[in-house]
Simulated assay, not measured.
Amino acid sequence: MNPDRDGLTYAVATLLAVTAVVDALAAAAAWSVRGLFLGPLADHPDPAGFGDLDLAAAGALQCLLMPVTAVFLVVLLRRRRAGAGWWAGLGVVALVTAGGTWAYVSADTVAGLVTGSGLLAAADLLNALVAVLASVLVLRPTSMQGPKTTGMIPAAQ
């Protein structure tokens, strides 16, 4: 057994895979709501109340899953001493998600709701992509972790 792949590694990889699926479903829900605002609800006097159910369900799943995944991922990355480039990527995703959420929640016109739901869909797709890339990172040890954990550090040249 690879000493770098323990139960925590597989738990994080599984949580990240589930996160990617939930984010893809949330993106589909946001895109569906966008379609409603572009189609049948385009002329409705109060369209804001119609699209929230799918988005609320997807958001609830994300709110339950993401903190758990984040805690396990942080523990694993701290244990592996992963680089700061990774943390910058997570920060960008958080900013895009916050911007999309703010645009959707603060919208009071159909055009604003279309823009906000489109931004939410993009943020969720970006989050799904980051979860997939993180899963690959978690399952693939860095070049120094493999030799360090097996005791086979190459001789100095």
Rank of each mutant, 00 (worst) to 15 (best):
P45Q: 04
V130L: 11
V75S: 11
L38A: 09
M1W: 11
K148M: 13
P147D: 15
G35N: 05
L15A: 04
A26F: 02
T115G: 02
W102M: 12
P45G: 00
G89A: 11
D124C: 07
G99V: 14
L38G: 10
G85C: 11
L65A: 15
G151S: 12
G7F: 06
A42L: 09
S143V: 11
L76N: 00
L53K: 05
L77G: 10
G49K: 03
L73K: 09
V92Y: 06
G116W: 08
L73I: 02
M152G: 07
D43R: 13
T101V: 12
A122G: 09
R81L: 11
D43L: 08
V105L: 06
R34W: 03
D4T: 14
V74Y: 06
A70Q: 12
G118S: 10
Y10H: 10
G7M: 08
G146A: 12
L53A: 14
W31A: 14
N2V: 05
A48W: 01
A29T: 03
P45S: 03
G89M: 10
T101I: 02
L38Y: 00
A56M: 04
T109C: 08
P40T: 07
Q62W: 03
L90H: 09
K148N: 08
D52W: 14
A94C: 11
L25T: 04
G51H: 05
A20C: 05
G112V: 12
A70D: 11
L119A: 11
L38Q: 13
A88C: 13
A28T: 03
V110Y: 02
A26C: 09
G151K: 15
G59S: 01
A57S: 10
V71R: 06
F50T: 02
L25Q: 01
A26V: 01
F72E: 04
P141A: 09
L95C: 07
A17W: 00
A60L: 15
T19A: 11
D46Q: 06
A121C: 02
S32Q: 10
R34C: 05
Q145M: 08
T69A: 15
V75H: 08
A26D: 03
L8F: 01
C63R: 15
A156Q: 11
V96C: 10
A20L: 04
A27Y: 10
M66W: 10
A156D: 13
A155P: 13
D108N: 09
T69V: 15
M152K: 15
W86I: 05
G100H: 06
G59C: 06
G83W: 11
W102F: 14
L15I: 01
V92T: 13
F50I: 03
R140H: 14
D108T: 13
S106V: 01
A27E: 12
V71P: 08
A42F: 04
D6V: 09
D6F: 04
V110A: 15
A121N: 06
S117E: 01
A13R: 06
A98H: 10
G7L: 07
G7K: 06
G49H: 00
P40Q: 04
F72T: 09
I153S: 05
M144E: 15
R5G: 08
A134K: 03
L133R: 10
N2T: 09
S106Y: 00
L126H: 00
G91V: 10
A29E: 11
V75P: 00
L55W: 05
A60H: 12
V92N: 02
V22A: 13
L65Y: 13
A13C: 08
A58F: 05
V12L: 07
A122V: 13
V114M: 10
